[in-house]
C-alpha cells in the first residue's frame, strides 16, 4: 500500500501549484483554474485521511467540495462573461477601475 505521506505530499504539491498559479498568472480563466487545482489538493487530502482513518466523513466532504467547485465555476464564468462584455479583456491587470 502507498503510504499516507505520499498522498499528502501530492496534495500539498497540487495545492501549492494552485496558489502559485493564482499569484503568477494574469488571465482570469487561468486564475480560476488554479483555484480549482487548490480544491483538488484539498480533496486528495480528505480522501487520503478518510481512507487511513476508516471514516466516511472525509469522503462526504469531498463530494460537497466538488459541488461547491462546480457552483463556483458556474457563477464565476457568468461573472467573467459579464466582465468581458463591458471591457473586452480577460487580463486582471486591466480590470482596474476601483482603486485606493
Amino acid at each position: 500500500m502507498v503510504p499516507l505521506s505520499w498522498y499528502l505530499l501530492l496534495s500539498a504539491f497540487l495545492f501549492a501549484s494552485g496558489v502559485a498559479g493564482f499569484l503568477i498568472r494574469r488571465n482570469i480563466i487561468t486564475i480560476f483554474m488554479s483555484i480549482e487545482l487548490m480544491l483538488n489538493g484539498v480533496n486528495l487530502a480528505f480522501i487520503a485521511f478518510a481512507t487511513v482513518r476508516h471514516s466516511l466523513n472525509g469522503n462526504v466532504f469531498v463530494f460537497f467540495v466538488m459541488v461547491v467547485a462546480a457552483a463556483e465555476a458556474a457563477v464565476g464564468l457568468a461573472i467573467i462573461i459579464a466582465v468581458y462584455r463591458t471591457r473586452e479583456t480577460l487580463n486582471v491587470d486591466r480590470v482596474n477601475l476601483l482603486k485606493l
Binding site: I35, V42, A45, G76, I79, T86, V95
Partner: peptide, 26 residues
C-alpha cells in the same frame, strides 16, 4: 462587474485555503 470579479476570485482563493486547513484538522 469588477467588484464581483475581485470578490469572487479572492473569495474562492480564501475558501480554498480554509478548506485545506479543515482537511488538516480532519
Amino acid at each position: 462587474n469588477e467588484a464581483a470579479l475581485k470578490y469572487l476570485i479572492l473569495g474562492a482563493f480564501s475558501s480554498g485555503i480554509f478548506a485545506y486547513g479543515l482537511s488538516l484538522f480532519y
